[in-house]
Design a protein around this nucleic acid. Sequence first.
DNA 1: CTGCTAGGTTAGTAATCACTAAGCTAGCAA
DNA 2: TTGCTAGCTTAGTGATTACTAACCTAGCAG
Lengths: 211, 211
Amino acid sequence: MATTPNPASHEKHRLASADRKTAIVETAIRLFAEKGFRGTTTREIAAACGVSEPVLYQHFATKRDLYNAIIDAQSQQGMEPFERKIEPYLAGNDDFGFLTALGELILDWHAQDPGAMRLLLFSALEGSELTQMFVERHADVFLSKFSGYLGRRMEEGGLRRMNPGLAARAFIGMIGHYAMDRQIFGMRVEDVSDSEVVETMVGIYLRGMQV
Amino acid sequence: MATTPNPASHEKHRLASADRKTAIVETAIRLFAEKGFRGTTTREIAAACGVSEPVLYQHFATKRDLYNAIIDAQSQQGMEPFERKIEPYLAGNDDFGFLTALGELILDWHAQDPGAMRLLLFSALEGSELTQMFVERHADVFLSKFSGYLGRRMEEGGLRRMNPGLAARAFIGMIGHYAMDRQIFGMRVEDVSDSEVVETMVGIYLRGMQV
DNA sequence: CTGCTAGGTTAGTAATCACTAAGCTAGCAA
DNA sequence: TTGCTAGCTTAGTGATTACTAACCTAGCAG
């Protein structure tokens, strides 16, 4: 008999309520990202956790509750590195540094958590009301910061004058679409490293924006 | 053999087999685009057509068969205007004309058939094997033509030398991501016309690519 | 008018879904 | 040891799913 308290062992022991809840959420994130809300059954989630279905309902009242908790948590923690790593550039005028950091962030976000984009797309297509919240609270906010930076740099004469919102979307699209083609559509891509991708696209964009 | 070439009357009369099949497909396209394969029931499709479920199974052996027929048809006819309107530019050197036409095509594609992108995204996320076929037969082929054009223009000295595949993806991403943000995520966009969007983005891209 | 058939319906099937009532048991406190 | 309770399971519920067997009927050929 082991008197061991509880290191995070993956045995089939009983878990404390909070630990079981965490395990359920982690498993459900994986499955919802793979197959969406409608495509994932509570039976599957329970089986993948190694427990029976009623255990899920001790932590979440409904399947939708579990899904909403996941989307909510993912969309908040997913945007956090953006806010953190981009902030220092916002007040400066290091266009190249800003764009390079942003481009790497976008590619890293896809590479580090390949399920996040699928989760977000599924929730948007399946009509989860949380998607609209994510857009308003995070995507729109970030885009407006980026647009604000570009607008100021245009007034300073560092960048050509144009619609800053469109300019911001142009850059994000260049990088974001590349990552999506690769991950969602499985398009074969050029045999280049992520940093080469960022370097090339920042090169095009910055030259296109400079006076 | 019908001696009466009935015009498409929307009455509750009986329809000839081919006409009924067309009606089913059109209805199913709308529903699958709205809610995906898993989210759409055969009962819904039948009801929206004004017929009973067994009628569907006289034209398609399974729900998956109906879906596959739709994805197949949509992905073929969806790419046709691209091939047609872009072809004339491929052998020339009118970079501005090419990019402007391509940008307008992408935005028009989204605007004219808002369901097409949803259908394609759903099929990619839900793992339809036809998505991979679409990518290989159409997306990859088109991208390689575009890359080929850019590569030739680089050799001619009209554009800066860089990875042509990345350069092609950069432009498509600028426009495509903008359209997706608007349509899939419902992001509020700047109060500008589509032609202003194309003009701005072609402006950034072309200046970024030229020597 | 009569008979035939293409186009359609009614009324189901077994399987699977989200969700639950009721009870079992490991393991700690005393 | 004994008793308690948090964590878990067994065994279902009614609703909904894709799909089907069997039958009906409008409308045309003769």
